[in-house]
C-alpha cells in the first residue's frame, strides 16, 4: 500500500484529498498535518468524514517519511519549505499555485514578487493530465491546477488543437464560480447575508489564473473574468472565440472527440434538447468530471465553448489524485469513481 501524507489539510481542498484517499484502495493515509488543529480528529474540520477514520491532525514538525507528500498549504508556504518537504517523500504534489508557472518572469508579473526558488520550477510538471499526461507519469513533482484556468483551458483546448480559432481576434472567457473558491476563511464578502444570491463581479479583469491559460493554450489575447454566483461548489467557463473560417457542428464534434475521445474524466455534453443539453456544474459536485460543450453562431462565426467542473475536484483535489495515480502507476480512475448527484 502506498503511504501518503497531506500537509495543511484543514482546508476545503485538504478535506477533499482526505475523502478521496480514504476511498482509494492502494493508498494508506499516514499523517494529516494542520498546525491550527493538531491533536483534533479530522471530522472537527471535515464533518462529512465523521466515523470514516480515527486519524487525527498532527503538526508538520513531526512529519515522517512517506511515499507521496501532498501539499495543500496557503500560497507561498510550499515554496518556502520545498527543500524540507523534498526530504520527506520521493513524490510531491503541490496543490497551491507556487510551482504552476514554469516561467519565473510571468510568475513575478502575476504574483508581484520574484519566485523564492526558481530552480525548482522546472522540476514540477503542470498537474493537468489532459494536457501533460506523459510528463506527469514520468515526473516526481507535480503542481496543482488553478480551478478557473482549468475550466477555461478545457473549454478551449479542442478548438486550439484543431486550429479552428482565429487567434488574431480577442477571446473573452467568463467563469461563473461558487463560494468554496475562496476557501474556508470567513470574510465580510463571504458573510451569508452579503454573499447569498449575489451575481458579483468578483474580478471583471485581471485574474492571476490568466497566466496558466496563456501557458497551456499558447495564446496571449485571452481576457479572463470571474463572476461569483449562487453556488458553493462549481465553476462554468463560457469562452467567446471566433472561428478562422466557417465550420460545421460535425467538424466541431470531430475536434472535441480528437482531444477528449479517450479521456476518462472529460465528457462531451452537446445535445439539441433537454435541461442538461449543455454542461452544468452543479451535478458535478464531488465528481472529477469536466463536462465540455459549445454553441456555434454561424452568422457571426462566434463559437462559445463551455466547460463545467467542480472547482474543488477537477479544479484541485481530483486532478491531484489523478496525477498521483499516473505517477504511481495506478489505473487513472482509481478512487475517482463517484459520478456526482442528481438532483442536487
Amino acid at each position: 500500500m502506498l503511504r501518503v501524507s497531506i500537509v495543511g489539510a484543514s482546508g476545503y481542498v485538504g478535506g477533499e484529498l482526505i475523502r478521496l484517499l480514504l476511498g482509494h484502495p492502494q493508498v494508506r493515509l499516514h499523517q494529516i498535518t494542520s498546525e491550527r488543529l493538531a491533536g483534533q480528529y479530522l471530522h472537527s474540520a471535515h464533518p462529512n468524514l465523521r466515523g470514516a477514520t480515527d486519524l487525527r491532525f498532527t503538526s508538520v514538525q513531526v512529519l515522517e517519511s512517506c511515499d507521496v507528500l501532498i501539499l495543500a498549504l496557503p500560497h507561498g508556504q510550499a515554496a518556502q519549505k520545498i527543500e524540507t518537504f523534498a526530504q520527506i517523500a520521493p513524490h510531491l504534489i503541490d496543490a497551491s499555485a507556487d510551482f504552476r508557472l514554469a516561467d519565473t518572469a510571468v510568475y513575478e508579473r502575476w504574483y508581484g514578487a520574484p519566485h523564492p526558488c526558481p530552480e525548482w520550477l522546472t522540476r514540477f510538471a503542470y498537474g493537468l493530465p489532459e494536457v501533460n499526461r506523459e510528463r506527469i507519469r514520468e515526473g516526481r513533482y507535480v503542481s496543482g491546477v488553478g480551478c478557473n484556468a482549468t475550466a477555461v483551458n478545457l473549454a478551449l483546448l479542442p478548438l486550439v488543437q484543431a486550429g479552428l480559432v482565429d487567434t488574431h481576434r480577442d477571446i473573452v472567457a467568463e467563469v461563473k464560480v461558487g463560494s468554496s473558491e475562496g476557501g474556508n476563511e470567513a470574510t465580510e464578502a463571504s458573510h451569508h447575508p452579503e454573499r447569498s444570491g449575489v451575481v458579483r463581479s468578483f474580478a471583471p479583469t485581471g485574474h492571476r489564473h490568466t497566466a496558466e491559460v496563456n501557458a497551456v493554450l499558447g495564446l496571449e489575447n485571452i481576457h479572463l473574468s470571474i463572476t461569483s454566483v449562487e453556488l458553493v461548489r462549481g465553476a462554468l467557463a463560457t469562452c467567446h472565440a471566433f472561428v478562422r473560417e466557417p465550420v460545421t457542428d460535425r467538424e466541431i464534434w470531430r475536434a472535441f472527440r480528437a482531444t477528449y475521445g479517450n479521456e476518462p474524466f472529460v465528457r462531451i455534453v452537446h445535445e439539441k434538447r433537454g435541461m442538461y443539453r449543455h454542461p452544468e456544474p452543479k451535478i458535478l459536485a464531488g465528481s472529477n468530471f469536466a463536462d465540455v460543450g459549445w454553441s456555434l453562431d454561424e452568422q457571426t462565426g462566434r463559437i462559445v465553448t463551455l466547460c463545467a467542473i467542480d472547482n474543488l475536484m477537477k479544479g484541485a483535489a481530483g486532478s491531484a489524485v489523478q496525477c498521483l495515480n499516473l505517477m504511481c502507476g495506478f489505473e487513472e480512475r482509481t478512487g475517482l469513481g463517484f459520478t456526482g448527484l442528481h438532483p442536487i
Binding site: 457542428d249 460535425r250 464534434w253 470531430r254 472527440r257 452537446h270 439539441k272
Partner: peptide, 10 residues
C-alpha cells in the same frame, strides 16, 4: 459502420 447524422458517433 453507421454513424449518427448529427455528430458522427458510431
Amino acid at each position: 459502420m453507421t454513424t449518427c447524422l448529427e455528430c458522427d458517433a458510431p
